[in-house]
Design a protein around this nucleic acid. Structure first.
Lengths: 382, 382
DNA sequence: GATAAGCCTGAATCCCGGG
DNA sequence: GCCCGGGATTCAGGCTTAT
């Protein structure tokens, strides 16, 4: 298959259009490649992408229908693409796409794979057998999972992500400082609490039905891409679906390549990405430092839309002013940056500063302390 | 090896001393079997234990330890090929003990295995390949994990447990009601927040050093044993260590069998278990479990005058109405009839229906669910 | 229009005892 | 072992409809 046959390029105004990548001149950047995942992976050059995010079929092995106690039917994943006859068949599939993923990944690149207990152990084993070096397993704790209706097991309230480098020698990217700032100056842990994708974010067709049965939340991809890539990096998603990876890559000024075989998903993804905002380059910050303050983090407020990159914050008397970067760092006009607490302290030439009280946002021409947003968040998420 | 050679029996006053287990008369109950895990597993009879908890060696790469198939250690090598050798050897070891575990487990028994990302994917794959049926993967979120000192990864703040039945046909034990009560009347999720084992609970030698490097918290075993076993069940722990499984089994009036090769651990475990309290039999719970309550039939209520032929029943909103026939069938105005469940399902066009909750009787102009009558009957006839 | 109640749904390997 | 039928079983959040 030639690339030209399966490329659905983005418009020219695309962020990637004019960027030069000397080591991978032929990559079909910022486009969805239509077709079989493994076949298309084979057309991509060796050592060419910085990050891979993969959401492969889980091989759920469901049988029969499930009804809620009140009688309604659970709309389960029943797509042909999730069905494999045996574990051996699933392992074979996994081995094939991981082998290509390994080849395509740069030496210092990393891969993320998400799954559930149905498939994640086989994926993890295959990753290790392929030579990948596991860096972390990350638990996505769902704040609103589907309950266990029949009371026969524990509520399956999480999914597992594996983060691995190409080899144990890789000098991989991990934006430790950004993540720590994002997490209110506490090290980011391996368990992440995030809601499932629902509401307005969930893509629906004209009939009101969900377009993709397993659309992932943008907040999840935000954290992944923020943690393990840099602006202008190339991010490959071999199971692109409705393009969450592309949307967040675009927000964060990364290049992306998607592989997807379903025309419906491709169409929805392309439309969605075309609408996605590109955050300003000056906001891409690499935050700096440490300190402490638990409960609701600044990053949490960002993930939930209370604060957005580009928002301007002031101190109560408008003596100081700073802009919010994607990782939750604040940046002042003179270029200094840091967490809300650090920058507040710096600007005041103080030893420390409670950024929640120091910084204010504007609403109806009034300045309100950041802490109000925390309270609003807590009011909505007790 | 004969069992007599490796058995370290508990004292006679032991809870298990006088209990008869007709199907497994030769089990060395409530004792630590000293020696190699796999060898000793082979001496245990088929289909004889109800629950297995296993905390196998985790990380063969970091420790530099490599296990030969029989379980003895070899010095690890450090080149690229050796990694494959290491994984293969670990897989072989895992396969051997899991095969015996599968054989020893009763048809309706379940197994728990705990691990980290270093080994859990291989364990999970081996479990599935062995024919075990995964029920849940459980995340133990550590409230006080060790931080990541170098800032190159996410804080590794959890461990993973896999809970699996012997086959997909197993009618395994899950004390749903107990766990729901335990969890403030919300069904227990797959992510558990517990502190690591420290303080007084942590066993220390005379030198103040911890006796076992990875002693598990009692709270973890408490939840596991409470969830997936019943009093008098037999619980096997093939990597007994310092005996946390034995302590909690004794608390909860379950029998236990431990396998351990290190004399220091055995001694510490035995002393610890000897001191462990046995909770009173009357405290073993299950009161709130409806499935365990004696069955009261609709006919029984009629025989005892709680319901009489000709009584009219309604659903909660009086959309439906039916009359009680002499045989306990309900009959609706359009002539359809059946049991309280069947007619309820028919009228709602549902797959099934719990008639006890669906149908209501009128008392002092108020509609009360049929279930109330069942409770009244049970109160009068304990 | 604001508040309250009701409805819908989400990667789900989802019953069990008696004849 | 199989078959039959009684009857046990749900949480959070967003959206829609009703008051």
């Amino acid at each position: 298959m030639r690339l030209a046959e399966c490329v659905s390029r983005m418009s020219e105004e695309d962020i990637g259009g004019d960027t030069e990548l000397s080591d991978s001149p032929t990559l079909p950047l910022n486009s969805i490649l239509a077709g079989n995942c493994i076949e298309i992976l084979k057309t991509l050059p060796d050592n060419s992408v910085d990050l891979i995010f993969a959401d492969p079929p889980y091989n759920l092995q469901l049988s029969g229908e499930l009804f809620r106690p009140e009688g309604s039917r659970v709309d389960a994943v029943n797509n042909a693409w999730d069905k494999f006859d045996t574990f051996a068949a699933y392992d074979h599939f996994t081995c094939l796409w991981l082998k290509e993923a390994h080849r395509v990944l740069k030496e210092d690149g990393t891969i993320w794979v998400i799954g559930s207990y149905h498939n994640i152990f086989r994926v993890g084993t295959a990753l290790q057998d392929q030579g990948f070096w596991i860096l972390n397993d990350i638990i996505w704790r769902k704040s609103n999972p589907m309950p266990n209706f029949k009371g026969r097991r524990f509520t399956n309230a999480h999914e597992t992500l594996i983060w691995a480098s190409k080899s144990d020698k890789s000098r991989y990217v991990f934006n430790y400082a950004s993540l720590k700032t994002f997490n209110d100056d506490l090290q980011m842990r391996s368990d992440w609490l995030l809601p499932i994708c629902s509401g307005n974010e969930r893509l629906k067709g004209e009939n009101g039905q969900k377009i993709h049965p397993t659309q992932k939340p943008e907040a999840l991809l935000y954290r992944i891409i923020l943690a393990s890539s840099r602006p202008d990096d190339v991010i490959l998603d071999p199971f692109f679906g409705t393009g969450t990876t592309g949307v967040i890559a675009r927000h964060l000024r990364r290049h992306w390549i998607g592989i997807e075989q379903d025309p419906t998903y491709i169409k929805a993804a392309q439309a969605r990405i075309d609408k996605a905002e590109v955050f300003d380059e000056a906001l891409m910050g690499q935050a700096s430092n440490k300190r402490k303050q638990p409960r609701v983090t600044f990053g949490c407020l960002m993930e939930n839309g209370f604060i957005r990159p580009g928002h301007i914050l002031y101190d109560s008397r408008r003596r100081f002013k700073a802009v919010v970067n994607v990782d939750g760092a604040l940046q002042s006009a003179d270029g200094r940056s840091g967490s809300i607490h650090k920058l507040g302290a710096q600007l005041q030439q103080a030893v420390s500063c409670n950024g929640w009280i120091f910084w204010h946002f504007e609403e109806n021409n009034i300045l309100l302390p950041l802490d109000i947003l925390r309270q609003r968040y807590l009011a909505e998420n007790p």
